[in-house]
Each structure stands twice: as structure tokens, then as C-alpha cells.
Design a protein around this nucleic acid. Structure first.
Lengths: 276, 276
DNA sequence: AGGGAGCTTTCATTGGTTGGAATAGTATTG
DNA sequence: CAATACTATTCCAACCAATGAAAGCTCCCT
């Protein structure tokens, strides 16, 4: 009603003020809206967060639901579907390593009864692939499918130490991530630590939040000798001394590596002298 | 050279003989090409199986790779990416139940040292969400992320018994899936079995392939009393008698249900008299 | 009953999508 | 070493699927 009578404007139907993104990207951006905190979303929430008009979102969502990437709940909200999970389970660096590592993680868990973690690197972060925790274990910072920084976690340091030289330099040049409850290492110390990790096959980090814990991590190698994952254990500070845990963690990591086709060198040091 | 000289055909550029499928569907169909046996694929393999020209496939794949749904290996092949796995880990019926159930699965596994399975129903099949197996356990038919029939597995029967009446009828009217190593039940027996499963909270199936095993499964309920998952144990035939395992399996399933907000009724029977 | 918010359908317009053809790269064969 | 076969990538003109404002719907709250 508030619309002024036609001055001379054409029907104005079908006008597309803003657009220009490939459809696939838009569909994927809908998936990207889901997060730990947002597991069930309404159409308007999805449209808002993916920054697109409701009809467009609805059309794309309809296709995603038809395929099974999303599922619709009784209350009309959408959640990530089992079909997507099914395809994702074929991810070599996701379920792939997990499948191979799980029995060894279980052994480690059973012996120690503390959190056991498995993670891979994706870009500038570690992605948690698996976590075994007792029903009554200490609080832990990260969940499976979540991301953790590289420089302030034991698992992250192992992955960083195993990354290619160029990537390491890039990361070291960046300002360090500020992680509550973890001491920030100056660049020099990080370099020394990374070198130690490569030599000993062990990284340790102490953190005070969300609870005071010590993490001990060790690298997992593939057949080519590349670090493809990291395995770690998280214990409450003051419990078993870390140096007692280290051999167990390293043994588990090596067992997984062997299963990935890695031929272990004679000594602990994989490469006696670091890169050129 | 074998091409006959221009008769009178126009440039024929941009002609599109066959098409008409939404772009999103095409992109998703590329993801669907991946399977247990096909975890790393070349461009042409993807294009062939998804039934689309190579340039089209390449363009779509490029978007999927940019987002992280796919990753490219050094040899040029594509695999499912960690980013997709990450989003999929938010699937309530995938990692969701898993996360809640895992500690109880572990308990059950530790006590029995046999395969422990967790599955949900997706349409006409069960999707395996989790499987705990010792390093040296019996051979088992299904892998995590894989699908199993409803009528010929213990886990499937539990899920079928918990489905809505209409769906059950549809499934019962279908010709039974032929599963090697499993006896085929006539329709009447299936009906009786499903009723028993609802009453006792236990389903059992014996199979002879890939090895002779007995499976014992029990339903997991959500807060609304709906069967959302099934939990089972697979033991070599002749080992622990199944009736000894049943209480342990049921207890574990109930523990998971309780964690999902299910308020257990006084007796084993959830609803004393079946639907009206 | 009225107002607001979210969901869904419609439809004229158009720009992203399309795939044959050409080119480049790679492996296999005679 | 040329010839063959296959795969990957770039190019681009034609065109159809995608687009989003508008309006109708349904529900909920007041």
C-alpha cells in the first residue's frame, strides 16, 4: 500500500540486485552455517547466516534434503544428515586414519584411563578426529570435529613440527594464537621446541584451562615418512608423571604408523640430522 | 580429417544435447560416486560415474575442492576432504548419538571383548555409526559408514521394530533382501519377531558368513520414546551363550537411552499394549 | 481480530552454467 | 621416435536453470 503508484517504472519483476556467486558455493555456504553451537537451524536462520534471500535458501536446501545432506526435523528445523556423514566417513584423513588408529587408541585408553586424542592438520589448524574419554574424565577443551590451534597444543606442535618447512615459517611469522590457560612461547622457543619434537617424537604442553592438565603427543607417519596425524594423551596435572606416559604414547603412535605402512628406522630419531 | 566437410551445419558451438539437472544435484552426485571401494578417483572416473562431461565435472570439482569437500592428492586424484567430515561430525544421528553412546559402547566392549556396533536407520537400511573391534577380533560384515539390510541383521530388526507402523508394512511387503549366510524368514515369522523385539527389547540373528556369528541387539530411545538407534554385539557362535549377553546389551542400550533424556518405564515393556 | 514473523509459491528476467571443440600433457605401443 | 590413446585443462557462444521481489499462507502472540 505504501508503494507509490507507477511513475513509469517497468514491472521490476525478476530484478536481481545482488548475485554472482556460483550455485555450488551457495549450497556449500549453507552447510558451513552449521557449527558446534548451531546444530539445528530454521530456514530463516540459515538464510540469514548464509546471507541469501529465503526463497533462494529454501530452493537450495530442498535439494540438499532430497539428497540427504540435510534432514528436516519434525519442528521444521534442519540438521546435517546421515547421508553426508556417510560420504564423509570415506575421508582418508578423517575416518581413514581413525579406523586404523582406533584399536591402538583403545589400548592406550584402557591402560591409562585418560583422554586419548587423534588429530590431523587442515591448513592452519588441527582437526580433532577422535577422542576417547571415560564417562567421568577431566574436562577437556576440544570435541571431535572441532579445531585446535597448532602452536599452543601438544597435538598441534607435533603436526606443525611435521609440516613442510615453508608452512612452518609462515606459521612462525604469524602472531601467536592467544589461548587462555596456555603460556605463550616466544618464536625462538617454539623453534627449539619443534626441533625437539622432531628429534624425540614427543611434544608436551601444560595448560590451566578449562582444567589444569598436561598433554603428551607423538607423530603418526605414513609409508612415505610424512607426518599425517598426531596422537596424544591428556592427563590431570599431578597425576602420572608425563615422562612415564611418553613411552606409552610414542609406542601407540608408532604402532599406528607401522599399520600405515611406515617402516620404522633403527633408532628413535627418524632423521638423525634435521633438514638441510 | 575423417570429418566430412561442412555440409551446411551451423557453428554448433554451445549446443547442449542433454542437461536440465540442477547444479547442486550434479555436485552432490559427484560426492555420491565415492564409496568404500572408490575412495580416490580421477577426474575422468568421477565424470564417467556421475555421467557428465569432463569440463562440467572439473568445474564443479574445483568448487568442491575450494571449499574443502574434496581434496586433491599429489597424483591428481580426488578424495573426500576433512572439511566435509568436519561438517558431517555435526550430524545428530551420525556423530551425535555416537558421542553420547561411545563410553557405554566402550564399557560393553571391554567386558566382552567382542565387536560392539551402533547403527541408525536411514530410509530402508541401517547405517553403521560405530564399531569397536579388537585388533584380533572375528571378521565382521559391515564397516562404519556402511549400510546393512533391516530384515536380516539383529541391528536392522531392532530399528525396523521401532519404526512407524506404515513403514514396517511397506518393508514387510517388499521381497526380502537375500543376504548370504543368513536364513530368510517368511513374512509371518518376521512379524512375530518384530513383536518379540518390541516386547523384550532384544533381537538375535545368527549368520554363517563371512564367519559364523551370533548378534544380539537392543534399541536406543530418545526423550520422546522413539527408537533412534540400535546397539549390538557380535560374538563368534559357540562362545558366550547369547542369553548371557542379552542383559549386558540391554543395559548398555538403556544407559544410552537415559543419556538421551529417555525416562525408563518401570518394567522392560515400554508400551504394554501395542498401538491401537 | 489484528499484527507480526516465518514459510512457501509464483514468475519475468538474465547471468551463471553448459559442453563441444581445441590444446596441452602423459602414458602406452609399434 | 613417431603414433596412438587417454586424461586434464582452457575457451566461449548459446541458453536454461537460477534468481529474488511480491504475494499468499500458516502459525503464534496479544
Amino acid at each position: 500500500m505504501a508503494v507509490p503508484p507507477d511513475s513509469d517504472a517497468p514491472p521490476a519483476r525478476g530484478k536481481r540486485p545482488k548475485q554472482g556467486e556460483p550455485v555450488v558455493d551457495r549450497a556449500l555456504s549453507l552447510l558451513a552455517v552449521f557449527s558446534d553451537r548451531r546444530r539445528a537451524l530454521t530456514l530463516s536462520e540459515l538464510a540469514r547466516h548464509a546471507d541469501m534471500p529465503a526463497p533462494t535458501a529454501l530452493r537450495l536446501i530442498a535439494r540438499l534434503v532430497a539428497w540427504g545432506a540435510l534432514e528436516r526435523l519434525d519442528d521444521g528445523r534442519y540438521v546435517v544428515g546421515v547421508r553426508l556423514w556417510e560420504v564423509a566417513s570415506l575421508s582418508p584423513r578423517g575416518h581413514g586414519v581413525r579406523e586404523i588408529a582406533l584399536p591402538y587408541l583403545e589400548d592406550l585408553f584402557e591402560v591409562t584411563r585418560h583422554h586419548v586424542l587423534l588429530a590431523v592438520r587442515d591448513n592452519e589448524q588441527a582437526v580433532l578426529i577422535e577422542r576417547l574419554s571415560g564417562k567421568d574424565a577431566t574436562e577437556v577443551a576440544y570435541r571431535v570435529g572441532g579445531r585446535a590451534p597448532l602452536r599452543t597444543t601438544a597435538i598441534g606442535l607435533v603436526l606443525l613440527a611435521g609440516a613442510d618447512q615453508q608452512f612452518q615459517e609462515t606459521m612462525l611469522r604469524k602472531p601467536p594464537e592467544l589461548e587462555p590457560g596456555v603460556a605463550v612461547m616466544p618464536e625462538g622457543q617454539v623453534r627449539r621446541t619443534l626441533s625437539d619434537v622432531r628429534r624425540t617424537g614427543i611434544a608436551m604442553i601444560r595448560r590451566t584451562l578449562p582444567s589444569t592438565t598436561v598433554s603428551v603427543a607423538s607423530p603418526v607417519f605414513d609409508a612415505q615418512g610424512t607426518v599425517v596425524a598426531a596422537l596424544s594423551i591428556v592427563v590431570p596435572d599431578g597425576a602420572t608423571p608425563p615422562n612415564v606416559l611418553a613411552p606409552a604414547v610414542r609406542a601407540a603412535a608408532r604402532a599406528v604408523s607401522r599399520n600405515l605402512g611406515y617402516k620404522a628406522e633403527a633408532s628413535a630419531d627418524v632423521r638423525t640430522h634435521s633438514e638441510g
